[in-house]
Design a protein around this nucleic acid. Structure first.
Lengths: 331, 331
DNA sequence: CTGAAAGCGCTTACAG
DNA sequence: CTGAAAGCGCTTACAG
């Protein structure tokens, strides 16, 4: 499928199609739309010479890569990209607002076969530009509700939050603190809502003073932990929105001379490899990060000519009980 | 610099140059050599059309990415690549023997601007192929002595091992265990040699039973820790070749009911962000991973027309004393 | 806003 | 083993 083919079908000349692809301004809106639609329908790809073929590249775009959490995703994407001989291009946005205006042009210039966005937004404009160049893409753990027609991959965060909180309730805890991730992120909100749902189902009142928010990193767990433990009536258990936050809570507890789980039970979320080596080994909600990454990669790289309609997939989470939880001291 | 220019200078036709670049067999050895030399000297890069310019891609090749250690390198490379608008392609070899035969062809096909190899070997064959396509490359923490003419980046590992061991000696320890990384890796051997040098300088005999080797990951620290602590005359301090191994040692100590640093002092190597959040906060040797990565990226991406001769650079390490070390119990 | 013409860098098929 | 010729996909400069 070359520029000439598209031009013929659109009833325009090759140069005009070239201009549309390169985002030149001097094209009539109606023409641009007609050409973009054909480009998309035929899955046009630039070929940089006689028989270049696809570049064999997936773009993996993070907002931050401070947590080992990101590495799990990298491992998953790398492994499935390798299976089909593709390379993985990593970039870091440092901004949850999503990729900038010229991002699509940059990745198109390197002939990327598809893009995976992690934890960011995707504007309608970026979405349209990707579609015009038929670069498939998926959002993992989107920040906010993605626009209609955007495929996404996540985990059953609500269920995870429910299971974690239920576990603490079953051990006999009644004052259970929660330190969530960024409140704007769907995955984070769902975990908090699962926590609330478990409390409400058990007839335990939800105390807003027991709910804090952070950024999924160690520091926010430490700060949130100190805050909750300074309360006049402190919690006997804390559910953290991520394993890193849980590590921060452990640190805060130790600094205050509290033993875990004797004086304070702690539950994390993610089940990073490190959770097993923490002290005490961390009870946490396992989300299959590598599988999520592999699925996103396949969605983006596999032509699957029939099923091009965008999907929203949530993979199952599972509570993993280790040694950081026990009945509260009073019992 | 186009194929036509090279052809003119080599006194051959453009198709012949094209054949050399694409590794076609039907070129006389003498011609091939002459063309390859010119290609290299002029830093020829394929341009996939009128004004494609460089692809803006750095290949970052790991043998494994299980440790958060790898993420620090990724962060450093990504940050400096971004400065010059380049993307970072990550791949994982799962083999310390280095990249396979067709690796150079694959990265050349995507027009990579340079390659950074982490912790692997680079064969003379791969080296020659990279040179023929003038793809600059650097090895970070090479496995074994790299061939002559290969640029490398590392840290002052020997000094780090010396400083860590000296610190333990100054605290009064005399039986100091060491759990090193893979004995084949230069960075690992240098740390062990620094340990030996410190002991010898202090007049403390080196006991081979106190030296173990592993793979830089948590598991090998745990296993090595248990082994050392099972000795009839166990060490009062352990120096681990990496922070992850030190975490494993902490785990082994706790499983045996030993307190750190009361019953056992532990020193790591790397100073990962996690070292600060460990319990107790880990005394460790800081190596500037992000700076090492940034330097490697600049070496590979910066044309620096004058200074093309390969360099070997070691960045300084520094002991960071936290709370996992103290005088031995007897004192 | 559009396209015929010229041009770019590269590759292929084939004659020698 | 080599290269003149033809061709590919794309872009640019410019006339209308």
């Amino acid at each position: 499928m070359t520029i000439a083919h598209i031009a013929e079908r659109a009833g325009v000349s090759a140069p005009t199609v070239s201009k549309v692809i390169n985002g030149r301004p001097e094209v009539a809106p109606a023409t641009r739309q007609r050409v973009e639609r054909l480009l998309r329908e035929h899955g046009y790809r630039r070929r940089g010479g006689q028989g270049d073929g696809p570049a064999g590249l997936v773009d993996l775009v993070f907002t931050e890569i401070e947590s080992p959490w990101a590495m799990e995703l990298v491992r998953g994407v790398e492994a499935s990209a390798r299976e089909v001989g593709a390379g993985v291009v990593i970039s870091v946005l440092h901004d949850r607002a999503g990729p900038g205006r010229d991002w699509v042009e940059r990745i198109a210039a390197r002939h990327t076969d598809g893009a995976i966005l992690v934890g960011s937004r995707i504007s309608a404009d970026r979405h349209d530009r990707l579609a015009a160049r038929s670069i498939p893409f998926v959002v993992v753990d989107p920040d906010g509700e993605p626009p209609a027609g955007v495929a996404s991959v996540g985990a059953t965060n609500w269920h995870g939050g429910l299971a974690a909180t239920r576990h603490l309730l079953e051990l006999g805890h009644r004052r259970i603190g929660m330190i969530g991730g960024p409140p704007g992120m769907l995955c984070s909100r769902a975990r908090v809502d699962g926590y609330r749902a478990a409390l409400e189902t058990a007839g335990v009142p939800v105390d807003p003073a027991l709910i804090g928010y952070g950024d999924f990193l160690v520091g926010s767990g430490r700060d949130g932990g100190h805050e909750l433990l300074s309360l006049p009536d402190p919690p006997t258990a804390i559910f953290a929105g991520s394993d890193m936050q849980a590590f921060g809570v452990l640190e805060a507890a130790r600094r205050r001379g509290l033993r875990v789980p004797g004086d304070l039970s702690v539950v994390g979320f993610d089940d990073l490899p490190l959770a097993r080596s923490a002290w005490p080994p961390l009870t946490t909600v396992c989300q299959p990060l590598q599988e999520m990454a592999a699925l996103a990669t396949r969605m983006v790289l596999d032509p699957s000519p029939g099923g091009r309609e965008p999907r929203r997939v949530e993979l199952a989470t599972e509570l993993v009980v280790r040694e950081s939880t026990s009945p509260p001291a009073g019992r």
